[in-house]
Nucleic acid binder design. Structure first.
Lengths: 306, 306
DNA sequence: ATCATCCATCACCTCAGCTGATAGAGAAGA
DNA sequence: TCTTCTCTATCAGCTGAGGTGATGGATGAT
């Protein structure tokens, strides 16, 4: 049982396998050869296996020994990650980076920064969560996430620090089979009033205000995918981020819906922010990620920090 | 460094986290509470981290502590696999099961047996290799695989023990765009002679005999997938296992090619065998898998063992 | 045959981790 | 408030696992 197995035994085993000799392993580990011999004998005794064929001048790994050396490497690597994690926190790196992402936020623009993060902090555990509209903000406030990628409405709240990354353009869209697609002209507000708007909503406040609602017929969804299913099936219209509907517009499964006197037309663009709590400083990795994002996006607005 | 970290420290850490108390951990591990206290203090000292907030009556994990407990579990699990592997070999289970599969062999019929193998021997490392026609047999003979799934031609060699599992029916097929598909009648051998046959061959003997060659125009492939690409593109005809071409026949991308006086017509079926070396007995897991396959397939031929 | 290097075994020594006792503190209940 | 139970930290003393260096037998190269 693990009560007897030691990482030191595994280290000795792997070193012998790598150098091909007990005495060479002793030299590398700065121990007497007899200590090496004893350690292997103890490991063999307790595990009940023969790791080496000793009939030749030098020891040769048995088949069992080879397989166990392979697993020993995995154990030692995992232990190394434990120590790297501990070392990281001594240097101010957070033990974990929890990131919350709102459903409308495209991940593609973030991929390169996240990939770079992994290269610079290879042992950092990172978690991503998505919870519905405003869910990311909520996770920040609850201390469940250190960083949020979200669309902040209508302005950046005072308790958050938010770096604007990119605009998120929303387009009114509809399926070609939907009556609004067959008007042959731009839709009036009266036309819109006749039909269901498919709305992405905040799961914590389903009846609360949601962006750009026109009519009185609103079907609310927490789940972006389910809303898309309804949209494609022609059950209603909605405003969608351009990045998400581009493929559907390209192949004709969805059409852009033109609306006369659209109340949301003047603010038809939302900003994707990378936000964190003002009173809870990011750790080193979080700060690094934010700086990397700032470099990659370089948004002209100077809203950050203010 | 790993020279100081011990599995025992990690076990103590995880036990405290699970039970919420140093003394409870001591009771479970049958040690004095002070030993637990010391072990944690040593771990904290060497790794330079504070694992517990001790300002309350009971210790509470810090954020760092929580992350490190998570990694400690992974290390202990990996060490557990090391011991399970050792225990397995004591019981006659081989340290690894290397399986070679010929490219024409369908994997779908084997899936259930392999899934069951994983359930019965959860810590057994299993590797699969594919090397081209006859590659599986070659790996058996080289000692690189314990078990082979292959089509043995023309009879089972004497040095192998082979359990017949299922017949593998080969169909001559062609793309609808190929001239042979547009004859409007069965093809004669003269028709066939005019066109390229796409042949799967042995990478070790590319010019060697391959099954069912008719004409003098043979393009040889080691790679089943590439051959299929050429076939679908109408560059030639070939004999394919029925199981592999059924979807293509169903949706019309391939047609069955009827051949008058086909020399291979009388032996249009090959047998899939599970084979191993006669002079190298299988370990427990290999034997178990063979028995399971025997049960699942129950082939009426009694060629096994003879 | 000689030499260098290998691993196994032995007797002895050292110190990490164990024990039980003690002190101070928190939490719950009367 | 007091009592009781339970908690962790620290201490002094003890034990045995794993270290050392020496020795013996064996292998492999010259």
């Amino acid at each position: 049982m693990i009560g007897s197995l030691t990482l030191d035994q595994l280290r000795v085993l792997v070193t012998i396998a790598d150098l091909g000799s007990f005495s060479a392993a002793g030299r590398q580990l700065q121990r007497a050869q007899s200590a090496i011999s004893q350690t292997v004998a103890t490991l063999e005794g307790i595990q009940g296996v023969r790791l080496f064929d000793r009939s030749g001048h030098r020891p040769r790994l048995t088949e069992v020994g080879r397989a166990l050396v392979g697993q020993a490497r995995l154990v030692l690597a995992s232990a190394g990650r434990f120590e790297a994690l501990a070392a990281g926190t001594r240097e101010g790196i957070e033990p974990e980076l929890a990131v919350a992402i709102d459903p409308l936020v495209p991940t593609a623009p973030l991929i390169e920064s996240l990939r770079a993060l992994r290269n610079v902090f290879p042992n950092l555990p990172v978690s991503f969560s998505t919870e519905g509209l405003r869910g990311a903000e909520r996770r920040l406030r609850r201390g469940e996430a250190a960083l949020a990628f979200c669309l902040l409405l209508p302005v950046v709240p005072e308790d958050l620090v938010a770096l604007p990354l990119v605009g998120a353009r929303l387009l009114p869209v509809v399926s070609p089979t939907h009556p609004l697609a067959q008007l042959g002209r731009a839709a009036t507000l009266a036309d819109i009033e006749e039909h269901v708007q498919l709305v992405l909503s905040d799961p914590a406040a389903p009846e609360g205000a949601s962006y750009g609602i026109i009519g009185s017929k609103a079907w609310r969804f927490v789940d972006l995918g389910r809303r898309l299913d309804f949209l494609l099936a022609g059950l209603g219209w909605c405003r969608m981020p351009e990045n998400l509907v581009a493929p559907f517009l390209d192949d004709g499964r969805l059409l852009r819906l033109r609306i006369d006197d659209d109340p949301a037309a003047s603010a038809n663009s939302l900003t994707l922010y990378a936000a964190h709590m003002r009173d809870r400083p990011l750790g080193r990795a979080g700060r690094w990620l934010l700086d990397d994002l700032k470099t990659r996006f370089e948004m002209p607005l100077s809203a950050y920090g203010s």
